[in-house]
């Protein structure tokens, strides 16, 4: 005979401990979901793991930046000048500050121009974390005291004469190479660089060693000592058997001190 469905009977038959604990746990779980109900923001999770309404509350904040295109209308000369030179990727407002107010009221809100040395140095001081090829100077040594804009037009900062050393833009490589076995080799020993590389680096990329034989010029067992480095004694290896099937710099990156 089928018994009528009565789960409470089963519950009542359980040990007292289980019944009490069940009540406590149910209360806790209920408290959790009640708390969630009140504490989790309404729009949470609609678009992702965040409060969707946050987008709207950010959107109503006052706008400070006018954006790159906004300046072109009234300052075509500066825009054109900058577009043709190194700072083409640097937005006007990165230097002049947020100027939304200036675009609507040009006379009432005059932008400031950062004329002191400390400003340019924020981007151009030597810092090993900067990407390779980024022009960097030592602010203490680089034409001290005078303001940068007296020599570099900020909208076209092309230096009065092109940088002479590769270290100007490849500071980190230069500094590691200086403590490597190849310290006495010039960069141009291994890279042929067009002089124009210093003016338009990406258009005129220098060469890079491409084969094992390249290093073999100095390191092969039968290589003559490099004529222009009479004191250098490059250690010799047998190209045929030493690390075959790989290019040398997979094991010895020649800029690095641990090249050995």
């Amino acid at each position: 005979m089928a018994r009528p469905f009565a789960p409470w009977r089963g519950f009542a038959a359980m040990p007292q401990q289980v019944r009490r604990l069940a009540v406590v746990i149910v209360l806790l779980v209920a408290a959790y979901f009640t708390a969630r109900h009140f504490l989790v923001p309404r729009t949470f999770g609609e678009k992702g793991h965040y409060r969707a309404a946050a987008v709207d509350s950010i959107a109503v904040l006052p706008i400070h930046y006018a954006g790159r295109e906004a300046c072109a209308m009234c300052h075509p000369a500066e825009v054109a000048k900058k577009a043709g030179s190194f700072h083409r990727g640097v937005s006007c407002e990165a230097c002049h500050g947020p100027e939304a107010a200036h675009t609507t009221d040009p006379i009432g809100h005059k932008p400031t121009a950062p004329r002191d040395r400390a400003f340019c140095v924020r981007c151009h001081a030597y810092d090993p974390a900067r990407p390779t090829g980024f022009p960097q100077i030592d602010p203490v040594l680089h034409n001290p005291v005078r303001n940068c804009f007296t020599c570099h037009n900020p909208h076209d900062p092309t230096p009065p004469r092109p940088p002479e050393t590769c270290a100007a833009c490849h500071g980190e490589i230069a500094r590691t190479k200086a403590v490597s076995p190849h310290a006495q080799l010039a960069c141009t020993e291994c890279h042929t660089a067009d002089p124009r590389h210093a003016q338009a680096p990406r258009q005129f990329l220098p060469s890079k060693p491409a084969s094992r034989e390249f290093c073999g010029r100095c390191h092969a067992s039968d290589a003559p000592p490099p004529a222009h480095l009479p004191d250098a004694r490059p250690p010799k290896v047998d190209l045929a058997t030493h690390g075959p099937r790989y290019v040398c710099w997979q094991c010895h990156y020649p800029h690095y001190p641990e090249a050995r």
Binding site: P15, Q16, Q17, R20, L21, V24
Partner: peptide, 15 residues
């Protein structure tokens, strides 16, 4: 104790 005062043999075994 959460009011569970049952000290019978069964209850203790259950514990």
């Amino acid at each position: 104790t959460l009011g569970v005062t049952d000290l019978s043999e069964d209850a203790l075994r259950f514990d």
